[in-house]
Amino acid sequence: MAFTTEELSTMDSIIKRYPRSRSAIMPLLHFVQSRAGYVTNEGIEKIAELLSIETAEVSAVATFYTQYKRKPVGEYHVGVCTNTLCAVMGGDAIFASLKEHLGIENDGVTADGKVSLEHIECNAACDYAPVVMANWEFYDNQTVESAKSLVDGARAGNPPAPTRGPNKLVTWKEASAVLAGLNDGRAHEGVQAGEPSLLGLKLSKEGK
């Protein structure tokens, strides 16, 4: 995959955010994932070339962080929180049933390339447990059934919208571009907060 002039200019603008170019490795890796879907060898070579460092140094960084994938994931990458609180509240049951439902294991991808599955750590949404993430968007208060309809919808090309997120679930590549710091114009979509986030405020207004 050769990089287009436009892509190269985006990569250049990412590097310019930083006083020292090497700091751009992480957003550049997210950017490569937004084009190829995962961290390709060409991507690593291009980043090394742009930052004037060795490809081994870029690989060392890419392999340290779990969000960088060295092989393709699904168009919708689903993460089930199985850290203690979510696990206990139903995350373990959700993860087990999704594996069975999709016929794949942890880190597996469905044959149609639509959905991949991973168990993830606490995603800073424990007051919405059990939590499922798809392309790192929040699906709060999940049940086995709701998680199954999420992956079924994803396979059929019309996944339900995230609970706290944009009006529509974007693809893995599109989400990766956001993580590279590119604006997709969807920041204003979706709720500003879910009910649990507002509970204390609501009670305070009731004089508590």
């Binding site: 993830i120 929040f138 956001v178 920041a187």
Partner: peptide, 17 residues
């Protein structure tokens, strides 16, 4: 910011812009 929160990244990025 942690990377596993696409919509939070959007909001913060837009706020900075």
């Amino acid at each position: 910011i942690r990377g596993e929160v696409t919509h939070v990244v959007r909001r913060l990025n837009q706020a900075i812009e």
